[in-house]
């Protein structure tokens, strides 16, 4: 399984088109989509919340008890009104549900559809570190170096227990676990550093299982990548000679 991944990787990498490196027109950015949908959702739930709370507060004030032996005088609902009070709100809620589900699904498609030309890196998680293996054999630990302007695809598995590779700045995580291969992708656009955290409980040092995504200028990344690849080759040769 791991071997086939390795063989597949260069195939995905070779056509890594200049276009993708140049700036990636037309590639959606799920993190930006997340922020937009979050805002819309926040408006939606705030509206519902405020209406409910306002009605409740009004009832609480309006119908407070004025004399000790006062009782309520509830309306008697006829069959029509009773059914109406169940069916109409049910449809209103359902409409909102389907609206949100449609939006959520649209964004979901972006999250799960890996754009062409992504840099594919393999991730092995283990208690308590992240090991990244690049197509040219370069290996890093707890440090994912990537070029700005090109989507990055992580193919993930775990050597021991379940972990979850979480990059809060890119609004994405996915579990890595033994015996299965999962993936996530994200779109780093500008150079900078981003926290990586483990989001699935994995024992003693779960909270210390931290890493970094280091987004580099494409030229700087290319230089680092060649050098790291040569080092990996040399290391592999050394091992072969032993």
């Amino acid at each position: 399984m791991h071997e086939s991944l390795r063989r597949l990787a260069p195939v995905l990498l070779l056509p890594a088109p200049a276009a993708a490196l140049a700036g990636g027109e037309g590639i959606p950015d799920p993190a930006a989509g997340w922020d937009r949908l979050w805002d819309e959702m926040l408006v939606d739930i705030t509206l519902i919340g405020v209406v409910f709370a306002a009605v409740t507060a009004w009832f609480m004030w309006r119908f407070r008890r004025r004399h000790p032996d006062e009782e309520g005088c509830p309306p008697r609902l006829g069959t029509g009104a009773a059914v109406g009070w169940a069916v109409v709100p049910a449809f209103v809620f359902m409409a909102d549900d389907f609206f949100l589900a449609a939006k959520g699904w649209e964004l979901w498609q972006q999250y799960r559809t890996v754009p062409e030309g992504a840099l594919e890196v393999r991730l092995d998680s283990a208690m308590w570190s992240w090991t990244y293996t690049y197509p040219n054999g370069a290996v890093t630990v707890n440090e994912l170096r990537v070029p700005a302007g090109r989507p990055v695809l992580l193919r993930m598995t775990s050597r021991d227990v379940v972990h979850s590779h979480f990059i809060p700045d890119f609004r994405v995580k996915e579990d890595s676990m033994p015996g299965r291969i999962t993936y996530l992708w994200f779109y780093p656009k500008r150079p900078g550093e981003h926290v990586v955290a483990c989001a699935e409980y994995c024992g003693l040092l779960h909270s210390r299982m931290a890493g970094k995504v280091i987004v580099m200028e494409p030229e700087a990344f290319a230089a680092w990548y060649r050098a790291a690849g040569r080092r990996a080759d040399a290391a592999a040769r050394d091992e072969g000679e032993v």
């Binding site: 409910f52 009832f59 407070r64 005088c73 509830p74 309306p75 009070w85 549900d97 589900a101 979901w108």
Partner: peptide, 27 residues
């Protein structure tokens, strides 16, 4: 995701019942 969102329907009805019980009550 769809079934989970749909839970808001029965739960919303339960909330309406609760708040509705205040209506024309003597609290």
């Amino acid at each position: 995701m769809v079934t989970t969102l749909l839970i808001s329907v029965p739960v919303g009805l339960l909330m309406i019942g609760l708040v509705g019980t205040l209506y024309r009550g003597s609290i």
